[in-house]
Amino acid sequence: MSSDSTPVPAPAAPPVPHAPRPKSTGLHKGEAVPGVAKVDPIIIADGVRRTFGGLTAVDVDHVEIPRNAITALIGPNGAGKTTLFNLLTGFDKPDAGSWSFDGKSLSGVPAYKVARMGQVRTFQLTKALGLLTVLENMKLGAKGQSGEHFFQGLIPGIWRKQEKSIEAKAHDLLRKFKLDAKQADFAASLSGGQRKLLEMARALMSDPVLVMLDEPMAGVNPALTQSLLDHILDLKDEGMTVLFVEHDMHMVRHIADWVIVMAEGKVVAEGPPLEVMQNPAVIDAYLGAHQEIDLGEITGRYHAEEKN
């Protein structure tokens, strides 16, 4: 519960490129039940509840997000994952509950202040700023720009130097995300997958502590998926914490250190990915009994025996 900023010493990753990077283990204290305490939590939420009329979208008793690890939030459609995201980032206000980030209470803190504290998010429906160029999108992400104050903005001399360093940083990130050739284009001209990349790169411009990604893989082609996965793993290596919502179970298994399963607004299970996916409650509520079976066999349009 301390706001101590030293990350949990993760097992040293071998500096060999393309080698599978080991997962962080030993994140929790005691048995991995819903709401289990973490060794070094970055987010602690207590009794967070949000109702829309008669529908209780989120009703989380207690949940902790481990620091410097990749946590996946999974669950069926309508489980309240995105609503929880909105609540944690200040985009929505809960009816009850308290939650803290890095030891500081976030109750009632507006979204922009949450972002300034180092907790940035992306959106399920990508929000690229269409009529700004890719480079402008990136530069917008930087924090503490003196030129964003009305009167200082009037005098270029005040912000020009900072603008140069922001631009250099934006170039670096764009190169990393393979968007550097597009930097002068309007963001509206990017494909859906490129917009996802841009949104993630833009979020990184603010040097976040916690990156929250809402379905980063939705609509991204397989080749790009691989590079996105690498980027997310890089974030952890750079000391950031990642929390993401995703339906792609391969991705969850591949990169998540910890999985939290939500259903009907509640946390129903959590634990390391492989264990959680064996949990009968999770299989019932979300994965379904046939997750390892080809879709063709379930629908009866294709039989494994036909394959030579």
Binding site: E136, G147, W159
Partner: peptide, 20 residues
């Protein structure tokens, strides 16, 4: 200026700008 950039960003999508 960066001020104008934020303003144009708000025109495009204010939630995205808020998230930054």
């Amino acid at each position: 200026s960066p001020w104008g950039r934020v303003l144009k960003g708000i025109r495009e999508d204010e939630d995205a700008v808020r998230a930054l």
